[in-house]
Write a protein that binds this DNA or RNA. Structure first.
Length: 166
DNA sequence: GCCAACGTTGGC
DNA sequence: GCCAACGTTGGC
């Protein structure tokens, strides 16, 4: 019997598609890119401490007319320092990290795995009492990286077809 | 574009 | 260490 810490975990990553969309991730070599720019301690701690290679991720498009989960991805690297925090030309430059010469933020590689046949919108998620525990649906939450309870992961995948990428 | 919710900063 | 001011997020 697998120990709990060996279990695959599930996550939800938000992104604003105008800045970086699921299709942008797919367009990367090997469907893989670094998930950088996380500048919130709780989100960082999830990424640094609680994820493992092989964990599964919903990619969620935020700040658009119909926010929605659009695809899945997989964590494909360990955490490493997010050096974009040290570069004053970067959007997510962090003066405090630069001052120390050491980034306090981390990133991981993420690889796109499958596209949802139809996006599962935020408003549709709210229609399912089975998803009451999903952090995304809690009032006032705005973490860009959130855990997804395994039961919710399975339930959401049951709402539409997942088409694996070649 | 508005604004509620929430996180961070910095003076004291 | 408190907390007011400020900045950001993200649904609507």
């Amino acid at each position: 019997m697998a120990k709990p810490q060996d279990a695959v975990r599930y996550w939800l990553f938000k992104t604003e598609p105008d800045a970086f969309s699921f299709d942008d991730l797919i367009a990367c070599p090997g469907h893989t890119d670094t998930w950088d720019g996380i500048r919130n301690y709780q989100a960082r701690n999830f990424m640094r401490d609680d994820m493992a290679v092989g964990d599964q991720v919903f990619i969620y498009h935020s700040r658009i007319k119909e926010p929605a989960i659009v695809g899945t991805a997989e964590i494909t690297s360990d955490a490493r320092p997010d050096e974009t925090a040290l570069d004053a030309d970067e959007k997510y430059f962090d003066p405090k990290s630069a001052e120390k010469g050491e980034s306090r933020w981390v990133l991981r590689d993420v690889t796109a795995r499958g596209r949802l046949a139809s996006p599962v919108t935020l408003s549709s998620l709210r229609n399912h009492p089975e998803l009451a525990e999903l952090p995304l649906l809690q009032k006032g939450q705005r973490l860009s990286i959130q855990p997804v309870p395994p039961v919710c992961w399975q339930y959401i995948l049951g709402l539409t077809e997942l088409r694996p990428l070649s």
